[in-house]
């Protein structure tokens, strides 16, 4: 993966958005969140994900429920709250706006000529 500092900054800024996306698909266990993200630009590690999930929970965007597991102790399954869903929808919208803005900025016709 090519990693210029700009790309790193973009990925870092979008990590929270990406985690909300993954949790938004349905109730999910932290290790599966990591697995989903592993093959993507947003590959991350427990050391980063756990504090982030904690923060999202404090912000009221996600909640977790304990679920029994045959493989060991009970696991935390995360899902979005109503507020989390709202936030995700708003982010989705914002992302589209930003994308359009960037396209526009790169177009010649958008140039405003000063007179």
């Amino acid at each position: 993966m090519i990693t210029t500092s700009q790309q790193i900054a973009i990925r870092k800024g979008l990590l929270e958005f990406a985690v909300l996306k993954v949790v938004g698909v349905g109730s999910i266990y932290a290790a599966d969140i990591l697995r989903r993200m592993q093959e993507t630009e947003f590959a991350t590690q427990e050391g980063t994900l756990y504090p982030l999930l904690s923060k999202l929970r404090r912000d009221g965007l996600v909640v977790y429920q304990w679920q029994e597991s045959e493989l060991g102790p009970p696991r935390k399954y995360y899902q979005l709250t109503d507020l989390g869903r709202e936030q995700l929808a708003a982010l989705d919208q914002y992302w589209k706006t930003i994308d359009q803005t960037l396209q526009q900025l790169g177009r010649r016709s958008g140039l405003v000529t000063e007179s």
Binding site: T44, Q45, E46, G47, T48, Y50, P51, L52, S54, K55
Partner: peptide, 10 residues
């Protein structure tokens, strides 16, 4: 694999 802790507190 777990990586160093990256605090996420705002």
């Amino acid at each position: 694999e777990i990586g160093p802790v990256n605090p996420s507190s705002s």
